[in-house]
Design a protein around this nucleic acid. Structure first.
Length: 263
DNA sequence: ATGACTGAGCATCTCAGA
């Protein structure tokens, strides 16, 4: 079955219950085919799926109390493939991973651990999560699958990806070990959708609530969409939707939208 | 030198976020 043109997006909403109206309005305005959400911050039964259903989107939810939580919304048919990152040695994994299949395309939504809390163990858990993600992506590559991994990576890949002073050099989002793991993922042969089309310049996806970060444009580029090789050939556009950060009571992240041509 | 937002939850403080 040939793949159709697709508009695929990711958005860390920082509580889906606080941002339900924002998401509804955004779906109506942008009309994505698939939207993956991060930091829904609720257990699955509390997810406002009926609201999105009324807007034409089916959903799959991987929730937990208070923290984390991911979901996928789709107006096209899909199958749920995984609700946790395969290969992660964690008895009770946090709700950070959803993998669905749309036609021949695997769509993976991730909320990668921040790594700044929990001391050395917390940072080690971030790196372990990245290792497991890379191993799984390699398995998909070896199986010759078409896929896109998008979401909140909590990694600013280069110094161009955060505003001067927005982070310290020792922050878990920019530490050399963090960036090395990210490059290991990229170097499987994946394409960073935003940088493929916009190789240089400040392009941010997050602005802290503190210190008037939005007003000063003191942002970070930490939400990414990585494409497998054949999917990268279909890439038409990729850009954060900055407009959402200027809305009332916004999330601190904005959506990132990727458009793919038909296969 | 400093500034300090937001959300959830056994809640008037703590943890986490980045």
């Amino acid at each position: 079955m040939p793949d159709q043109p697709l508009r695929i997006a990711t958005w860390n909403v920082n509580s889906v219950r606080q941002r339900q109206g924002h998401v509804e309005r955004w779906l109506a305005r942008v009309q994505p085919d698939v939207l993956v959400l991060q930091e829904i911050k609720c257990e699955s039964p509390a997810f406002p799926g009926a609201v999105f259903e009324a807007a034409g989107y089916h959903s799959v939810v991987v929730g937990q109390k208070s923290y984390n939580g991911v979901a996928a919304l789709s107006r096209v048919p899909f199958e749920v493939v995984h609700t946790a990152l395969p290969g992660l040695a964690d008895e009770t994994p946090a709700a950070r991973y959803i993998e669905i299949l749309v036609g021949n395309l695997t769509i993976i939504g991730i909320y990668l651990p921040n790594g700044n809390s929990g001391g050395d163990a917390g940072y080690a858990a971030k790196l372990a999560w990245m290792d497991a993600l890379t191993a799984h992506a390699k398995a998909l590559m070896d199986a010759d699958r078409d896929f896109i991994i998008l979401g909140d990576y909590n990694v600013a890949p280069t110094d161009e990806d955060y505003a001067l002073g927005a982070l310290s050099a020792t922050d878990a989002l920019v530490r050399p070990a963090t960036r090395a793991k990210y490059r290991s993922l990229l170097w499987l042969g994946l394409t960073d959708a935003i940088r493929a089309l916009h190789p240089t310049g400040a392009i941010y996806t997050f602005w802290d609530y503190q210190s008037a970060a939005w007003q000063r444009d003191s942002g970070l580029r930490i939400d990414h969409a990585l494409l497998s090789p054949r999917v990268a050939e279909r890439l038409v556009s990729a850009m954060p939707d900055r407009r959402e950060r200027g809305e009332e009571q916004p999330s601190d992240h904005v959506p990132v939208v990727v458009e793919l041509a038909a296969a």
